[in-house]
Write a protein that binds this DNA or RNA. Sequence first.
DNA 1: CGGAAACAACCAATCGATTGGTTGGTAACC
DNA 2: GGTTACCAACCAATCGATTGGTTGTTTCCG
Lengths: 215, 215
Amino acid sequence: MDLPAWEPRRVVAMAAVLPEGVTPPGTRGRILEAGLQLFAESGFAGASIRQIAGMVGINSATLYAHYPSKGHVLAELVRIGHEEMWARLSEAATRTRDDRAARQLAALVRAHVLVHTDYPLLAVVTNGELHALDPELAAPSLRLRDECRRLLAEVLERGLDNGEFSIDDPVLAVTAIGGLGVQVAHWFGPELDRTREQVADQYAQFALRIVHAGH
Amino acid sequence: MDLPAWEPRRVVAMAAVLPEGVTPPGTRGRILEAGLQLFAESGFAGASIRQIAGMVGINSATLYAHYPSKGHVLAELVRIGHEEMWARLSEAATRTRDDRAARQLAALVRAHVLVHTDYPLLAVVTNGELHALDPELAAPSLRLRDECRRLLAEVLERGLDNGEFSIDDPVLAVTAIGGLGVQVAHWFGPELDRTREQVADQYAQFALRIVHAGH
DNA sequence: CGGAAACAACCAATCGATTGGTTGGTAACC
DNA sequence: GGTTACCAACCAATCGATTGGTTGTTTCCG
């Protein structure tokens, strides 16, 4: 087996991309993109406002004309990340509302993986730097996060009730399946010889096997 | 399903424990334990040497009589973490050397999960802060990390060759199964109503299902 | 049209605090 | 008397954040 080399980095080096339609226009948006890049590479504590401002091409003082603090830049990134996650997962759930639980689970895992392949930097910051946020700034994102976990828990419950799935410990299954997608953001990149759809399909199959669907 | 609440933290609050027999005696060992606690909670950049020294109960200057830099404290923690990981995985692999691939895979995943439940703080630091290390300080740990991945890849290869396993993309399976255990360190704690063995057994079953063993 | 007021964007300079790390020296113990 | 363990004081650098002020553009009034 040809294992690709493991690189000691937080995230694959790539352009900081935010979901369409959510990036504020002008300097605010460029601050967000620079913050995304640096928070993903160095973490919240490891990135300074001077680095962010320097990447944008403005003075560090100007940053405070757009955001009241470094934490507010992170908060907006975390909020965007959670909203994109929720939008994709809830869309996948309602689209497959009337399908068998196995198909709905596959759709959820596919959506979960794809949001991590499409915005890996945002996912790393959203999942890995949430703890650095003041509780009141983090609260809205925490609510969305719980909603996302409930989507996954509900489809597992439905599949268990109607006999499609077979799991000894459903709570651990939710944790394990949810964790599958999260890891993707740490290694997926454009240099990989697999497409986003290939990864999503394979991981959806892994999830179906974990719940023992179609046994 | 009763999902436990998700907490926005890097790692469960618990005592910083290092594997037996590897902790240096005296102040050096207490510096390691304090560094482990603070690096796990706040990351390498987010923890200061004054915090570490304060937790030990010594002046920050005294720390430099035991370690030449903050990075060297992290380097020793990362080295200990990787050596414990390698010791447990290679023991599990040789112990099941002559078993069927399915049994060997289960033993590997069990060992992988258990090292994360036994030393969650160390695992978080080892996996999550390796990137902050100078390349020459990280090199020995990177070698051990590759050895660990090869153990997993080899048992998968063996199971594929003799027909025990069935996987479309074995490299992704290695990545997914390896990622399963890593996540455990972020939520496992003493307040959980599952034992370390219960989690390890369930995750071993998940891994066996991912490779479609015993289908 | 012309001038004044309001505006958003920006920056040099600076704040007090903290950073990782160094110095010179003290006290205790074998 | 040498070694080990320790610390008060200090260093240059950087931290997040603030101040006072300069641009260029837009808006409104006469």
